[in-house]
C-alpha cells in the first residue's frame, strides 16, 4: 500500500481501482502545484525586495487591518478542515450527500474569505493604496491578489464538483477530481501562511 501512496488523502484499500486510477493525475497535479509555488515564490521575493519602494505612499501601518486578516486566516483554516471532512466522507461513506454537504460548507467559508479580502482592498483604495501608487503597492496587490484569484478559481471548481456529483455521482473520475481539488485547497492555505507571516505580520511587527 505504501508503495503507491501519493500526496493528499489516499483512497487506498477502500477503493483500490479508484486509487490506482488516481495515482498519475494526483502526482501530476502535485507537480503543477510545485510549479505554481515557484510563481508565488518569485512574487514573495519581489515583495520583499520592494518593501521600501513606497515612493512616499502608504505602507503596512496605514493599509492593513489585522482583525480582518485574522478573520480571513480562520476562515481559510476552517475551510481546509471542512474540505478534509469532505474527503473523508468520500473515502469512507461512499455516499453523495455527506460529501456534497461538506463541500457546501467549505464553499461558504471559502466565499466569505474573498468577501473580506475585497472589503480590505476597498479600504486600501480609500486610503490611496491603489497598485498604481508605488512599486511596493504593485508588489502587494500582485501577491495578495494572485492568492485571492486562486481562491476564486477554487470556488468555481467546488461548484463544478457539486454539479459533477449531481450528474455523475461518485464515479472514479469524480473521486480523482475531488482529490485534486483537495490538494489545491490545502495548497492555498500553505501560501496563505506565507502571506500572513511575511506580508501582514512581518509588515506590522
Amino acid at each position: 500500500m505504501s508503495g503507491t501512496a501519493h500526496p493528499g488523502l489516499n483512497l487506498g484499500a477502500s477503493d483500490a481501482r479508484a486509487h490506482e486510477r488516481s495515482e498519475t493525475p494526483v502526482f501530476g497535479f502535485w507537480v503543477f502545484l510545485m510549479s505554481d509555488l515557484i510563481i508565488f515564490g518569485i512574487l514573495f521575493a519581489h515583495y520583499i525586495v520592494m518593501t521600501d519602494a513606497r515612493a512616499f505612499g502608504p505602507g503596512p501601518a496605514q493599509l492593513f487591518d489585522l482583525k480582518s486578516v485574522a478573520a480571513q486566516t480562520s476562515l481559510l483554516l476552517a475551510s481546509s478542515y471542512t474540505y478534509g471532512m469532505a474527503s473523508l466522507a468520500m473515502k469512507h461513506r461512499e455516499r453523495i450527500r455527506p460529501v456534497a454537504l461538506w463541500l457546501i460548507v467549505t464553499a461558504i467559508l471559502g466565499a466569505t474569505f474573498p468577501g473580506l479580502e475585497l472589503r480590505d482592498f476597498a479600504n486600501m483604495i480609500a486610503e490611496g493604496g491603489v497598485p498604481q501608487r508605488s512599486g511596493y503597492l504593485s508588489a502587494l496587490w500582485a501577491l495578495v491578489g494572485l492568492h485571492g484569484l486562486h481562491v476564486a478559481v477554487g470556488l468555481v471548481w467546488i461548484a463544478v464538483m457539486l454539479a459533477l456529483l449531481a450528474v455523475r455521482g461518485l464515479s472514479n473520475r469524480t473521486k480523482t477530481r475531488l482529490l485534486l481539488l483537495g490538494l489545491y485547497w490545502h495548497f492555498l492555505d500553505l501560501i496563505w501562511i506565507g502571506i500572513l507571516s511575511i506580508v501582514y505580520l512581518g509588515g506590522l511587527a
Binding site: A5, W30, G84, L190
Partner: peptide, 20 residues
C-alpha cells in the same frame, strides 16, 4: 505550520513514496 499542514492535511510523510 506549513510542516503541520503538509503532514496532517496533505499526508506527506514516511508512508508516502520517496519521490513525493
Amino acid at each position: 505550520q506549513i510542516a503541520v499542514q503538509l503532514r496532517c492535511f496533505l499526508h506527506i510523510g514516511s508512508a508516502s513514496k520517496r519521490e513525493d
